[in-house]
Write a protein that binds this DNA or RNA. Structure first.
Lengths: 219, 219
DNA sequence: TAGGAAATAGGTAAATTCCCCTAAAAATCA
DNA sequence: TGATTTTTAGGGGAATTTACCTATTTCCTA
């Protein structure tokens, strides 16, 4: 591995970027740590300086762009730059977008230690893809990839508490067709009924944080 | 407001605590910023130094204690110390525990800006309770407070895809009783059916991060 | 200790979901 | 273009959920 890496932290929250900088500087292979707080500064930096790795947040205050936009723009201009995505809210469905569309190299939950941060850095510099998530999560996303376009329209409505008939009315199709879609979805996701489907959907959309926050259980 | 505040950051992640320290030092009313990375250091610090405010994380690597434990211990010993809880995963059900049991003074999601951090600090020093969450979330928690002990046992089973009959078998009660419990829960939570109930439950347990991460929608 | 939930369980009937099929038009893709 | 998948829709029937009821026992709290 190179031992004079130039890294760039792209993150609009000061609290986090200042901390990141201090940590990254402790790694012996890192020569220089730059910071950018928005899209414009990021692009300016990669043009001016030879950057090896970008640590990129997905959340930005502005609605004009987000981490996805930045990742794509960076890879368009300089494909060789490795991108490690850091995100506070590890929602499973973002994986697809990140790896297929944005070509990022690693995905890390911000609730991470210095060790894991450096491990990701080393893996990525060796050309590997790194994800700090459990296998189960990955398996669950793959199930959702099988869900068709129309099926994806049915689920949110069902989960809001609409009956199959009501969903049918909203989509201007037969209740029978909706029933078939739901059956198909349940088979693909390997769930027993609509109730379990609703739970799985919310986990998928909203992220699963089981075993976090001290393993607290609400009931 | 006092203008020579001593604050303590209790947080085991270096990345975050280093950043927090830098930010807090920028506030004119803050005289001194201390850091503690575990329960022992926290208690030692409040005994040695007169602390006004603690910024407390809920997540700790260890399973021996968590933010809740620390908050309780601190308030037991020195009730006057204000506690501002910072958490990465804003799960709604923790509110109850935090405010009723641990007597914390503020609750902030880590995805916050400097402004909000300082606003919370000022509100808390004026003796107010501060929560950076929307009213809807609060209303939704209150609905869950009405759910009885037995009802709380039924919900997780139902959400796992078990039928009312199967839930009844597991709890060794009549299917009819389970049915009554579910009806009661649906009325209390104002949901239309079990499917919507499942969705609400997962949101409640796992936290709602709608409108975060750039308002991305999966479908 | 009296009142009020909570937990228990049932009757009846309607509404809804779920299952196992078939089948054709439309869209997609190789 | 030919093959595959998606979307559409239905028949028939079983299983399940939901809606309104009543009613007893237990438990908790003011």
């Amino acid at each position: 591995m190179k031992n004079n890496l130039s890294v760039l932290v792209v993150e609009d929250s000061l609290i986090f970027s200042e901390g990141m900088e201090l940590i990254l500087k402790q790694h012996t292979a890192i020569k220089e740590v730059y910071t950018a707080h928005n899209l414009k500064d990021t692009i300016a930096r990669i043009r001016k300086t030879a950057i090896d790795i970008i640590f990129l947040d997905l959340n930005f205050e502005t609605k004009e762009y987000d981490g996805f936009t930045i990742a794509k723009k960076v890879k368009e201009q300089q494909e060789a730059i490795k991108i490690i995505v850091l995100t506070q809210y590890a929602r499973v469905y973002v994986y697809e977008k990140l790896f297929k569309e944005c070509k990022v190299d690693a995905y890390l939950d911000k609730q991470l230690g210095t060790n894991e941060l450096f491990l990701a850095l080393e893996k990525v510099m060796q050309g590997e893809i790194y994800i700090n998530s459990n296998i189960e999560s990955i398996m669950n996303i793959k199930k959702w990839w099988k869900i068709s376009k129309r099926e994806k329209q049915v689920v949110p409505l069902l989960v809001q508490g609409y009956t199959q008939k009501e969903v049918a009315d909203r989509l201007n199709i037969s209740a029978r067709t909706v029933e078939n879609h739901i059956t198909s979805i349940m088979r693909k996701l390997e769930v027993k009924n609509s109730v379990e489907l609703a739970a799985k959907y919310v986990l998928y959309v909203n992220g699963n944080r089981e075993n976090l926050e001290g393993g607290l259980s609400p009931f």
